[in-house]
Write a protein that binds this DNA or RNA. Structure first.
Lengths: 238, 238
DNA sequence: CGCAACGTTGAGGCGTATCAAGCAATGTGG
DNA sequence: CCACATTGCTTGATACGCCTCAACGTTGCG
């Protein structure tokens, strides 16, 4: 498992350099960040943060996929955020973690000690502006997901999820045949069910139904080919 | 209907002075805000902003209640945010409104011209810090609502909603008998159903059921007495 | 091979949506 | 002041989508 990042890597070669919280930093600001950053690795399935615990750090997800999740006492679980490379983890100005964070694939984080990062926020407007921008984007994403959870059918939920993953994982430059797309799902059926407010069985059934209607093809457990993405977009209700 | 604010009111006597985006402003910063603010009034039911339209201003809700809502083509609607006094409306750095904003009671806004407010954000760290803080709070609220929409039963949804309204509207100083509370619902049954991802009929039935179980008493259409708020909290699943 | 983890499929039940009727409060015009 | 319409809410009967429980299939690994 050595596609992980070593502690010595510089920000210049960082794959999320231009999308993460550091995106709009000047070279000198980047140098400051460079000094206080540490990489951490987690294996698939490992917890990263527990809800209610002290948060030792904030940071950016560099590689892999993680989920933000919330539970009810009786075990019902809802995933409230999907963290992909460049997403920010943690909240400056708050002691305790509000949600569980779990690695769903192997994960590398670029972490900053919280007090030092908060200091930076006060002195580096580029960082605090970028963080506000990212927080507002996440707020929009959360609100879009509220429409899905509250009003969409199981079929629409699955279609919306596939479209969303395609949008976030596919490079816009690499267009294949006009409308065909191919993705590797970053989540298991169970993780998808927690994200979509469904059961694992319903997720499975809807994947089968979309396949039967030739809106998707399945390759193994994780691979999905979308022969006509506009057709799938119609099913998603945008 | 002259509980509305006149354009001449100063920030000193503003009811949301210490909770809104201006909360941590110094007197001189407040003076700047004072110069660029305008009050606007809307009647109950009136639209404030349409999704997709140019946003002419940003601002704070001073009095009344408004909703942020999103619609699917076929008319299904989901309320994605409840705006109460001190909440911020609009997003600096974005041209178009992402959601419809509707006044559900008579509403007064304290508006700032967008370009001038954005200028202020760059020059007044107290404002941008406060805005980040508020955005992160809203993000947490949206994520808590995702748990409700994705995993809670209709009964739990109604109980959670009542608890949430009680928390946001009741002054913490004014405690009545230990566990008894009284609220005036700011929303109609229909607006509640859109917020909770239910139908109006289900909302009505669950209110009746909670009443039958003596967890609430209903006074007219909008009044609710909660004889034992801890009991209701148990029903809400917190 | 045997087992564990993940996924699929089927049968039946439950909770909420849908459709429909009626009630209470409020407003309107003759 | 009364007939009538309107709006917001409640209640009932029925339908249906998703959940629950259960069995089975597939893949990967010790």
């Amino acid at each position: 498992m050595e596609k992980n990042f070593s502690k010595e890597k510089s920000c210049d070669s960082c794959p999320i350099r231009h999308r993460a919280v550091c995106a709009s930093c000047e070279p000198n600001e980047l140098a400051t960040l460079d000094q206080i950053k540490t990489y951490r690795n987690y294996d698939a399935g490992q917890p990263i943060i527990f809800a209610g615990d002290q948060m030792p750090f904030v940071g950016s997800l560099v590689t892999g996929t993680a989920t933000l999740e919330q539970m009810l006492e009786d075990g019902r679980k809802q995933t409230v955020g999907l963290l992909l490379p460049s997403d920010f983890i943690g909240r400056p100005g708050r002691e305790l973690a509000p949600y569980d964070v779990t690695a769903v694939t192997d994960v590398t984080l670029c972490c900053f000690q919280k007090p030092k990062f908060e200091e930076l926020l006060r002195t580096t407007p580029h960082v605090s502006q970028r963080l506000l921008e990212m927080a507002l984007d996440e707020l929009d994403a959360a609100r879009d997901w509220m429409l899905l959870l509250g009003r969409k059918t199981a079929r629409e939920k699955i279609a919306t999820f596939i479209i969303m993953i395609e949008k976030r994982l596919t490079h816009p430059t690499l267009t294949r045949h006009q409308n065909e797309r191919h993705i590797i799902l970053p989540l298991t059926r169970e993780a998808m069910s927690d994200y979509l407010g469904l059961t694992i069985e319903t997720v499975s059934r809807q994947f089968s139904a979309l396949k039967k209607d030739e809106l998707i093809r399945l390759e193994g457990k994780r691979g999905v080919t979308i022969p006509d993405i506009t057709a799938l977009r119609d099913v998603a209700g945008y």
